[in-house]
Design a protein around this nucleic acid. Structure first.
Lengths: 140, 140
DNA sequence: CTACGACTTCAAGTTCACTTGAAGTAAAGG
DNA sequence: CCTTTACTTCAAGTGAACTTGAAGTCGTAG
């Protein structure tokens, strides 16, 4: 497949595919003339990348998790670590969602006076603080 | 309070506070000499900003939601919309976490052959596609 | 065989959210 | 009053993840 085919099937611009290749996230199997040729397997890999992105991994994290091989060998420990991290994120976001819903209903003169909202803010502040302590840790 | 006091209490560097002020996210109540003076209320506002950030709003979105006033008037519709979006995100991330856990256990020769993982990838791909359609929509 | 359009590279540009550095000012303490 | 220290401004730099543009190459339809 050439790049536009992959682009179409993956729903990504060709420029992104070139960028991903340059970053070592995907590989082309060769060239027909100048043109990159991709194996259909790249679609699975792109799906994995999409999966990772959507879980909040940086491209670099994804690269290191997928490894060099065409067949990605995924580090199980890393997966569990990420799942743990995701658990924390989920608790955050659930609180957030509940807080937003509550805020939308709440008739307190100001959200700032509402205990629910206050608890929520506590969480958010903690989160922001955590993020500035350890940089580049996902949940982006 | 001067800026370092706010910084300490909010857990943010002073540079960030200046940056936020420049962007219209917070306001100082005046100057003592050159030095900005902040009302304690800025802490609540910073907490709201943290809340917003942690829910995936951009600074610009937050600015428009909090409005000019010191007492932020929050648009309830926007809140519910964001909560809806967060719900979708939560479903995503829950699937993601389950998928990661599963992948860590799974003995299939490749995750790519595992139906659980495949379903997951479908979700992620859809998500990435959705993101490239409407740009700058949070879930960052 | 030629022209067109799809590809190529490489450098530079973009946005977001800040951070850093230089150079200057002023409040607070001795 | 003088020094130290904490603040100030403004411009420029950073990093992530791409996108855009210019200039060139090449497969394929006519």
């Amino acid at each position: 497949m050439d790049i536009s085919e992959v682009a179409k099937r993956a729903g990504l611009p060709a420029s992104t595919l070139r960028f991903y290749e340059e970053k070592g996230l995907i590989r082309s199997v060769g060239r027909r003339g100048l043109r990159r040729q991709f194996s259909p397997r790249v679609l699975e890999r792109l799906a994995l990348i999409a999966l990772g992105r959507s879980a909040g991994f940086s491209l670099e994290e994804i690269r290191s998790m997928l490894g060099e091989a065409d067949r990605p060998t995924i580090d199980r420990q890393a997966l569990n670590d990420k799942a743990d991290e995701l658990d924390r994120t989920l608790r955050q976001l659930t609180a957030m969602r509940d807080g937003l819903r509550h805020a939308a209903e709440c008739t307190a003169p100001s959200h700032l006076e509402c205990p629910t909202f206050q608890r929520l803010m506590g969480l958010a502040v903690a989160d922001v603080a955590r993020r500035s302590r350890r940089r580049g840790e996902a949940l982006r």
